[in-house]
Design a protein around this nucleic acid. Structure first.
Lengths: 366, 366
DNA sequence: TTGAAAGCGCTAACAC
DNA sequence: GTGTTAGCGCTTTCAA
């Protein structure tokens, strides 16, 4: 970004002061403390400023001096284009933006895609604090943020006990889904989940990977499911779990295909996100499976498209989450222990879940 | 944002240098020009930094010195929450973000709602340039941006001949809609448009307001419509045009209601955005009007919901627009004249437009 | 009211 | 390969 036409440059506070024959303090005051000088003088200062093309105090220099950047950084570790396409992420973003707007702070989106190992962007960010959203516990960008001497608030991911955090009770939330399915009589279930770790694994997920996932939210959901189905003697090790790195509807469909191809007797597909569930619905349709008659599908998040599709899911307040994160950061007063805000979720029973057909029904029709 | 637990603070480059018994240059080099010192010394520097809890060069101080903020500012003059809800705005945002991401630059969302007359946020923004999206030509935030000595790129709004600009040919694009309707035989049409000026006018729009609108995009579209329908002897002054300040589906519906209540003989509702058109569809349904049989409705933008609804509309490349704006800014090399990028649009004939019923049909059924 | 002095923390010539 | 010097442009005690 070199020059462009609209670049006047040059005049500084000092040169203005010299021109006016007053001290720098006075000029500074004209901008920052109007009550500290006579209206007349202030008028003169401002007028001369306009004449000289002085654009007012340089924000960077002011920031250096005041030790305030006037902005909050948002770390996403996800291609930004993803962030703007995932309704959950957009809602969160909106929430953070709202909090910033109210406080008159800017919101700086820090570029940090998963491919880019380059942490420089975090170091370059002139901000008064960071909100970290949905990054794996071992992400280098996160480490870089934590080194910066500014307050940090984490949302959903990762779970750290050194910084403030806002999230939901993922285990409890998805247990609601599990209980619902168990009551309906489902015992042969399959799971579609989002990225569990920084390395790509678009495939079935062995137990160890489930247990050691660095994406804590996904890990917590899987663990809760295992636990819930354990109570009805379902051996979790035999439950097929398919993972997808990129969170898209298409991937939900392909994951469902992969799972059903191997295990066609599954009566319910539990998805850890609505996006994946919408893909599962597509795949079900493609195979001629009627939902919920032939196959139950559940989601997670409560995005608009999911409710429109009648998905059984868990609704979570994404906007409130973002807002809470922003506010926590902005009010990061001195406090000894990290604060934790846990938001409420709500089980939404849609039309995508029903009792599984019995074996007879499978053979002889409904 | 005072302190919070995770705030180490203190050590500076200078103190590190002192501790190590080397010059500040050396420490600086350790971070910025690794090839300027022995690997061994660098290792020592970095190690000591870690020990002292030195988080690396302060980004603000560095920015002051290098005269680079490493970020692009985005001015929106709209409640941020609007920006995240309007699909067009989100697409644009994504495009700008993409361009920034590729260049390793941050994207700073500048808080500047229409209510907030406070321009301070613009002054505080530590950025290397601004992208201005969809603000009225007389917006004070815009004026503040133009005073800043950094390159600026404008998208859609406003039209200035001093800065780079990216947009579409609004007149030509909506003329396509007009011609389509004219060919179908529509002569009694009504228009639903977005905010025309900074002052709220949720009502019919007199000619003068149409002509003098500071939202140039809307003005251009209205002018093109007037012109197109002029060729078939439609007197534009008699065409009802209803404006809405807030760009929501609900407002589209209420605008359609207001228009149809006064002028029920209208055969086509031309909307300057898909959002408004979707609202118009709702209102048509409510009145028991079948679209397109009883009423033709057209939109503008080509958002996903519109295509899903089968709306006749103009598709415009919002993401490409954002990306182009970002790239224009980032490559703002020296150039004498402002650059203008005009993107292609495409007329999409959906199922929401058809020939108007004749008077007889109106009375005796189709 | 206004001004003088003292940096905020860092980088970039340039000299050693 | 390393140090010296000179600010970047601004705010803020403190004294006048």
């Amino acid at each position: 970004m070199a020059q462009s036409m609209h670049v006047r440059r040059s005049a500084t506070l000092a040169s203005l002061a010299a021109e006016l024959g007053v001290s720098r303090t006075t000029v500074s005051n004209a901008y920052n403390r109007p009550d500290q000088l006579s209206p007349e003088l202030r008028r003169r200062v401002l007028e001369t400023a306009r004449r000289l093309g002085y654009p007012g105090p340089d924000p960077v220099a002011r920031s250096l001096r005041t030790r305030k950047a006037g902005a909050v950084g948002l770390l996403l570790t996800e291609n930004l284009s993803y962030a703007f396409r995932d309704p959950g992420a957009v809602g969160f973003l909106e929430g953070v933006a709202l909090a910033c707007e109210e406080a008159g702070l800017g919101l700086l989106l820090v570029p940090a895609s998963p491919e880019r190992e380059d942490v420089a962007a975090v170091h370059k960010a002139g901000v008064d604090g960071f909100v970290v959203y949905s990054v794996p516990a071992d992400d280098p960008h996160l480490a870089a943020v934590l080194e910066r001497p500014v307050p940090t608030v984490v949302a959903d991911q990762p779970e750290l006990d050194t910084v403030d955090r806002v999230g939901i009770d993922d285990g409890a939330a998805i247990s609601g889904i599990a209980r619902h399915l168990i009551e309906l009589g489902h015992r042969r279930v399959g799971v579609l989940c989002m990225r569990l770790d920084r390395d790509r694994n678009d495939d079935f997920v062995p137990m160890q990977r489930q247990r050691e996932a660095h994406f804590h939210v996904q890990r917590a959901r899987l663990a809760a499911l295992a636990n819930a189905f354990g109570t009805v003697a379902v051996d979790w090790a035999s439950v097929p779990v398919v993972e997808r790195f990129d969170h898209t509807v298409a991937n939900g469909a392909s994951a469902a295909k992969q799972l059903l191809d191997r295990d066609p007797h599954v009566t319910a597909l539990i998805c850890t996100s609505d996006i994946l569930a919408l893909g599962a619905l597509t795949e079900a349709r493609r195979r001629g499976l009627r939902v919920p008659h032939d196959l139950t599908v559940t989601g997670f998040d409560g995005i608009a498209d999911a409710e429109r599709a009648g998905l059984t899911t868990v609704r979570q307040p994404v906007l409130a989450k973002g807002k809470a994160a922003g506010e926590l950061l902005i009010n990061a007063a001195e406090h000894a222990k990290p604060r934790v805000v846990t938001l409420e979720t709500e089980l939404v029973i849609g039309t995508s879940s029903a009792a599984p057909r019995t074996t007879e029904e499978r053979w002889f029709g409904p």
